[in-house]
Design a protein around this nucleic acid. Structure first.
Lengths: 131, 131
DNA sequence: TGTTGACATAGAGTCCACTCTAGCGTTTAT
DNA sequence: ATAAACGCTAGAGTGGACTCTATGTCAACA
């Protein structure tokens, strides 16, 4: 099944502009052209999906480019690509834990915010605060 | 206990530049000055910690400013601040789930990447691919 | 007293990831 | 055959969050 750029955009929830931008940045070096027009295959959509995951989990575009370039070279170097992915996977796990901690902090602060700010703005505004 | 800007930077893992930038952006309107020099109290460090959590979980600076402004007004409006925080909390939960899904996708792709790219670059490079 | 070091401001510059515009070509429907 | 719809490129512009530079003040020390 083949798709135009606008269909690919729909399927991936990216904008047409963004897909072209990614192509320009070397993230889609494998996309075929017919008379200059991009033709997206199912596998290209798969790659765009992975790309979105990587982007959404904070991988910078230049790292994604490195990954795809490794993948395109040959099987030996593709292993490097897998390695990048595995490393990023650990990264994402760390982010998850970090975000969980942030959530806990936010919960804690929600409870203590009123008190925290009453102390800051009610008492300290009126009383002398010796340093 | 009071801190200079450089001590506050150390405690929060922000740079001095960044703290001053946050102040300029109206995120630290409550920080005292002595002869122009910022003096950070324990509570200010608490607020900087929360600020980092919010920033790390994707809250834009203008929203953080709105929050702090609500908190500074009075108790009624402080409730608005709490509401913002609660809303953001749900936001972060959604992000957590999204990131978990991304992690699953990445795991799946790690398994299937070699196959996916062999199909793309080995077969299609040599055979005619009818559209 | 003069140098060092920490503080300050204003504002310019950087980096990233888009996002948009202008201008052009091709296919499709009336 | 002309206009609408969609595709293309090059390149300018945007927005967010820093990051850095130039310049200046002030306090403490040799």
């Amino acid at each position: 099944m083949n798709y135009t750029i606008s269909q690919a955009a729909q399927k991936t929830n990216l904008s047409i502009h963004t897909i072209r931008y990614y192509d320009k940045e070397g993230l889609l070096p494998f996309v075929y052209r017919e008379n200059g027009t991009r033709v997206f295959h199912e596998q290209d959509i798969d790659w765009l999906d992975l790309l979105c995951c990587l982007k959404n989990t904070g991988m910078p575009i230049k790292d994604i480019r490195t990954l795809i370039q490794h993948c395109m070279d040959n099987d030996a170097v593709l292993e490097k690509g897998v390695a990048i992915l595995v490393r990023h996977r650990h990264n994402v796990e760390a982010q998850l834990k970090e975000m969980q901690r942030s959530l806990d902090t936010i919960d804690y602060k929600i409870k203590h915010l009123p008190q925290m700010f009453r102390e800051k703005f009610s008492s300290e505004a009126s009383e002398s605060h010796n340093e």
